[in-house]
Structure formats: structure tokens, C-alpha cells
């Protein structure tokens, strides 16, 4: 991580290189029918926006425990801009959507790109403003926190409804948007867990505070495991009970598939069973190794879930998926390593 410390030009170069590489691979190599970019966007936008949303929610509830990891979490805000721009290149691939053949007032290519781009951009702008003000501990930070959360909710809801749900028209679930922003928040908590452990290893200065933060993060993770499964169950139960073909199709496609049917329970284990049972004992919440493992499991679970959402309906290139994953992971590491100048403290 230390090697990634650099000045603003250096960071800009890294972003540019990763961005260009992804664009070249996606536009020139992969072709219009390949949706690897969509998977990358759907996953990383959740993680990036979730980190900022976690800090915003903590600031609004006057939580003290966030302080030791605040800068690291806030420093991911440039990623949202990166994703906004990357999103525009999805414009080359909009034919993966069934509605592209029969466009209407809401679902047409230009409007789809414009509304989502503007929402992402606004989410970025407020994330940026919030990150700066929050670093300075200024009066205005709460106002930006509220604005950011509003746009976070709208942006994540549209990710769910527009980017993912429309792949499978006429299937719909009204909770899908809510499910996505809660999941995004959940992934933010998971990243906070990883950052806690990482910072604990790095510095010995405020390890007392960090240990408390770790415990609180783990408690929040435990709570969100239960909350997540509640939302999952709320959707599953309604669809199972109603038993209407257009609603069940989504589940049937995935659960009756020989491979996906076996992978799907893993999501439930990664996002609920494992974190819930393993973090249940009071003491395990302060065991850094366990919390780190659970954090990684949760992030992996969310990735797997998004993969399962997309696999049956679009074509993905495993090579590209992995490459893009590594590229964005590198960017995350880069911004977090440079948090000292990205988020200036007063």
C-alpha cells in the first residue's frame, strides 16, 4: 500500500490508465453484446457509494466510532466520478437490454444514459462536497450528508431498476431498489471492517480507538446481516406465495439452473448465515481476523449475487470480469493510500 502513495498527477495517471484499458477492452475487444462492463459497474458503484453513505449516516447520527476510519472511507469519492464516466461507455452496449428493440418514453437509449449519468454525477458531486466538508469538520457537512444520502438512494434505486431489472422485463420487484441501496450500505460496512483491521496493523497510535471501531463495525455488520436477510425474505416470500409466472420467472431461472442453483445458496451463506452466526458471540466482534474474513466474505457474496443476477440474461467474458475487478481494486487501494491529501483534515 505504501508504494501507492503519490501526488495528484500520479493518481490521475493511474485512473487514466485503468480507465483507458477498460474502455479499450470493452469497446474494441469485447463487442456490443458483452456485458462484463455492466457487472463491473453494478458491483463497484455499490461499494463506492456505500462507503460514503456509511460515513454520511454516521455523521448524521453523531456517531463517534466512525472517526478513526472516516478518512479512508471518504477517500473513495473519486471512484464515483470514474464510474460515472465509465457508465457512458455502456452506451455502446445498450442492445443487451430487451427494451432496446422497442423503446418507449422511459426506456429509450438517450434518456437511459442521461438520467443515470446525471444521477451518478450528482451523487459524486455531493459525495465530494461532503467528503471535503466532513474532513474539515465544518458546519456544512450535515447538509451535504443529507443531500448525498438522497442522491445515493435515488442512484442506487435506478441501478437496481434501470440497469438490472429492465434486463428481465416484465419481471419486477418493487423492493429491488431498496434492496440495492441497503446492500450498497452493507458493502460499505464490510469495507469499513477491512479498513479497520488494515489500519490496526499499520499504526499503533490510536489502536484503542480502532479496536472500539472494529467492534462497532462488527456489530453493525451483524445487524445488517439480519436486516439484509429480512429484505431478501420479504421479496422471496411475496413471490413464492403469489406464485405468478411473471414474478417467479426470475427465481425459477436461477434456482433451477444446475450451476446457479447450487451457487445461489452461497449468497445466503455469505451475506447472512456466516456473518450472523459467527459474529453472534460478544467476543468474536473484537477478533480482527474473524471480522476481516467476514468483511471479505460479504463483499464476495455481493459480487456473487450480482453475477447471478446477470449471468442468465447477458453474456459475460470471465477474462474481462477478472481484469476489470483487479483494475478497480487497484483504484480503491490507490485512493485509500492517498487519503491524506484527498481528505484534508483541519
Amino acid at each position: 500500500m505504501q508504494k501507492l502513495r503519490m501526488n495528484s498527477t500520479g493518481l490521475a495517471v493511474i485512473f487514466l490508465v485503468v480507465g483507458t484499458a477498460i474502455v479499450i477492452l470493452e469497446v474494441l475487444v469485447a463487442g456490443a453484446q458483452n456485458a462484463s462492463l455492466l457487472l463491473t459497474l453494478v458491483f463497484w458503484v455499490a461499494l463506492a457509494e456505500g462507503c460514503i453513505a456509511l460515513v454520511a449516516a454516521a455523521e448524521l447520527s453523531h456517531a463517534q466510532w466512525i472517526l478513526p476510519i472516516k478518512r479512508a472511507l471518504l477517500s473513495v469519492y473519486p471512484i464515483i466520478l470514474f464510474i460515472s464516466i465509465l457508465f457512458l461507455f455502456l452506451g455502446f452496449k445498450l442492445d443487451i437490454y430487451p427494451w432496446a428493440a422497442k423503446q418507449n418514453a422511459w426506456l429509450n437509449k438517450p434518456f437511459f444514459l442521461i438520467r443515470n449519468f446525471i444521477l451518478l454525477l450528482l451523487a459524486f458531486l455531493f459525495a465530494w462536497k461532503f467528503a471535503v466538508e466532513s474532513g474539515k469538520e465544518s458546519e456544512k457537512k450535515n447538509r451535504y450528508a443529507v443531500l448525498y444520502i438522497l442522491f445515493f438512494v435515488f442512484s442506487q434505486s435506478l441501478v437496481a431498476f434501470d440497469w438490472v431489472m429492465t434486463l428481465e422485463y416484465p419481471w419486477f420487484s418493487t423492493l429491488f431498489g431498496g434492496f440495492f441501496f441497503v446492500e450498497s450500505f452493507y458493502s460499505g460496512i464490510a469495507l469499513a471492517g477491512i479498513l479497520c483491521v488494515w489500519l490496526l496493523k499499520q499504526s499503533t497510535e490510536d489502536s484503542d480507538k480502532l479496536e472500539k471501531t472494529l467492534k462497532d463495525t462488527a456489530t453493525l455488520m451483524f445487524g445488517f446481516a439480519l436486516f439484509w436477510v429480512g429484505l431478501f425474505f420479504a421479496q422471496y416470500l411475496v413471490i413464492w406465495y403469489g406464485n405468478i409466472p411473471e414474478e417467479t420467472s426470475f427465481l425459477v431461472t436461477r434456482l433451477s439452473d444446475p450451476v446457479l442453483g447450487k451457487l445461489s445458496p452461497l449468497v445466503l451463506i455469505a451475506l447472512f448465515v456466516a456473518p450472523f452466526t459467527l459474529l453472534l458471540p460478544q467476543r468474536s466482534k473484537s477478533r480482527s481476523g474473524l471480522v476481516q474474513a467476514m468483511s471479505m466474505l460479504i463483499i464476495a457474496g455481493i459480487f456473487l449475487e450480482r453475477l447471478i443476477f446477470l449471468i442468465p440474461v447477458v453474456s459475460l467474458n470471465p477474462f474481462l470480469v477478472i481484469l476489470e475487478f483487479l483494475g478497480l481494486a487497484l483504484l480503491f487501494a490507490a485512493v485509500i493510500a492517498n487519503r491524506h491529501w484527498l481528505i484534508r483534515q483541519s
Binding site: F233, Y236, L237, W240, Y241, N243
Partner: peptide
């Protein structure tokens, strides 16, 4: 309602 006798979701 055409549901199995042992229906796990409601029993949860």
C-alpha cells in the same frame, strides 16, 4: 392455496 403441506417459508 396449492402450497406444500410442509411449507418452510411461512413456518420461518
Amino acid at each position: 392455496g396449492g402450497k406444500p403441506i410442509v411449507s418452510i417459508p411461512p413456518f420461518i
